[in-house]
Design a binder for these strands. Structure first.
Lengths: 246, 246
DNA sequence: CGCGGGCTTGAACGGTGTCAATCGCCGTGG
DNA sequence: CCACGGCGATTGACACCGTTCAAGCCCGCG
């Protein structure tokens, strides 16, 4: 057990400069709705963006603020949340490199429909609304691709919606597997979710209380399915979890 | 009480012809993503569509079928559902005149991501995928507008998602009010939801069991908030319901 | 008039939320 | 380097909402 005496996470300090021109270019090619652009066009797009750095816990924007920017995640992880009745956060998405957030899902509104918060240190590319419209007008393929991208997001949200029909156990298993897939790194035993993640964060993600999630993880830990610690989780037996995940 | 001896619903028989050219034209102007088009352009769009009639209970398309058409609802109400683990339906949306469904929310997939079923008699306009792509290519404004439209749908789905956090009472109140708004007709007492709607249908809509919904409606009926019968519901006191609806 | 499907109601069970107490890791300051 | 303080995690007890299983009822149709 000496393995997990201390946090096994890499605590990287991301500074804005860390988003080098090479990284920016690379990321842009991974964004689905720029995928049809030629290198020269990508370069033109790149010039319209500026990069912004965030440290874990920073808010990228908040629900209700005037929507003015489209963000593309270059490095790090960002979660989007919505406030329900009593300051209660509900997580609506978990975004990694190549994913987007901001005005695009909020088209047709003049304010952001959700808040976005950096889970880890992160570097984002930001497009002003005018700049992005310029891109949309100039490269029609981007419009179509953006349409698919938002549709994918829609499908993912519908997935989440009908998963709620299931138990906390099922949802937690799904979320853990998704986390391991999106930002897991292999360790000697299992896959570590490479981002600080408290029980409360996890609870928000699955739509449950921290106590419930804690109990569940304790059981799974005893059964050898996961390893956990203060603000971190690792998936040891993905297959067993997949059994639960509907 | 002699009021509700028998079904108070109009059992209209919608025939496809009922979707007259005038209705079609009118509806197209109400579809958000055609709103920027000039009359002549709308006409061109109209010629690409064909109208299809459905009676209550008919499936417009089913989850998993190859996605080939975009539908715009001209008259009537359509619900979209997804199958979960055990044949369990989860309703993901409730669509009225001017709303759309079909390939658009499924862009980036080659099969429908959901099933669509007519709740009442309904007339839909159908665009083949090639026809709609033609429209997208010819009128760039449609692409942008479609982007907003899908975004709106996304927001609505996220709404539904975080409403689930609440109780069955809250969700049922919301759904009843939405139903009354979308397809209610005024009666001497209250607003009748003009479509055959069993307790089971309602239960699917709110994500609960028929027994639970039945109990709830019984209570509300005793309190004078609603009137109900075999396969129908009427909202008597919308304000009181709104109190519950978060 | 009788049957059947939909509706209602009852009772028991179980998963989760809630409240509350305790433990233990980790960063801080002496 | 060690003691301390605080926050996050854990665990228990309990209440409650909603499901589940099981009867029985009633409307509306043949």
């Amino acid at each position: 057990m000496s393995d997990r005496r201390r946090t096994p996470l890499y605590i990287e300090v991301i500074d804005p400069q860390h988003c080098t021109p090479e990284v920016r270019r690379q990321i842009l090619t991974e964004v689905s709705f720029f995928s049809d652009l030629k290198p020269a066009e990508l370069e033109a797009v790149d010039r319209r963006a500026r990069s912004v750095g965030f440290t874990a816990g920073d808010w990228v924007y908040r629900e209700g603020e005037p929507a003015s920017q489209l963000f593309v995640i270059a490095t790090g992880v960002v979660k989007t949340t919505r406030l329900s009745a009593e300051g209660m956060h509900t997580t609506t998405g978990l975004l990694g490199p190549g994913d987007f957030c901001g005005v695009l899902p909020a088209l047709g509104f003049d304010a952001y429909q959700e808040s976005a918060q950096a889970l880890s240190g992160a570097c984002l590319l930001a497009f002003g609304i005018a700049d992005f419209n310029w891109v949309l007008g100039r490269y029609p393929s981007v419009s179509r691709a953006a349409l698919s991208a938002v549709s994918l997001r829609l499908a993912a949200t519908q997935d989440a919606l009908f998963r709620i029909g299931g138990t906390v156990e099922q949802r937690t298993a799904s979320v853990l597997l998704e986390l391991a897939d999106k930002l897991g790194v292999r360790r000697r035993t299992g896959v570590l979710v490479q981002t600080p993640l408290s029980r409360e964060d996890l609870a928000d993600l699955v739509g449950a209380r921290t106590e419930t999630v804690s109990r569940l993880l304790s059981r799974w830990r005893r059964q050898g399915l996961v390893e956990t610690g203060r603000r971190w989780v690792a998936v040891v037996d993905p297959d067993a979890l997949a059994e639960f995940a509907v």
